[in-house]
Amino acid sequence: MKEFFHRRIERNAIGFVLAIVGVASIGGLVEIAPLFTIHETVEAAPDMRLYTPLELAGRNLYIREGCYACHSQMIRTLRDEVERYGPYSLAAESQYDHPMLWGSKRTGPDLARLGAKYSDAWHVAHLINPRDVVPESVMPRYGWLQRNPLRIDDLGEHLAAQRAVGVPYTDAMIENATADARGQANPEAAESSGVTERYGEATNVRVFDGNPSLVTEMDALVAYLQVLGQLTGAAHQETAGRQE
């Protein structure tokens, strides 16, 4: 009898647990599950290219330094935002972003359409000390990026992991990841021709940080910043289409 009583109480508590999990999960399921069939409705971006290994490394530095805490990369469908920053962001544009970096706070301006807005030298100077370029800025200095050599030996592993979560990197891209990073940061290097071959003619192949002899973290971050909003032209077409 006593045994039975105890078991009943226990079942009571377990039922309670199941009820909480059940009730709480529904909202998430209803909202999130359909998003996994959404590829059917996402605007197509056939011209979309992938991040090069150097740009991906730069993106990881953007994450490492917490730039996302002050900068969004998501232009909303509001007139003032479109006029200030450029065409509003499309879902397709971040389809290969693991994780997304939409951000939640604009202590600094949105960066979704930053690519090609400034010169590499501007970015380098700005990152070394923002107040040299914009006296009112409250952005931190990032001088160490210019000094630290970039770790490139493991970029192949990074690309392979990206492919495993769904980014269509090819075997050749993975095999040549390290060489491509070196090549993209130095057009004089023998490896540089492979970069445009694999990632397209529009890829920026330059000495981003002004120092051709070393691939630094600055090279990677600036390469990434210069490609923001440049991977596909879909957003510009979409906005043009809407205005007609």
């Binding site: 909202e31 389809q95 994780p99 939409w102 592993e157």
Partner: peptide, 22 residues
């Protein structure tokens, strides 16, 4: 997915909209 067992770095299974919503 961790880059490897010797890396602290990992990549989210989700991307873009799904990742934002999650």
């Amino acid at each position: 997915l961790p880059v490897s067992f010797g890396h602290a770095k990992s990549y989210s299974l989700f991307s873009g909209v799904q990742d934002a919503m999650t």
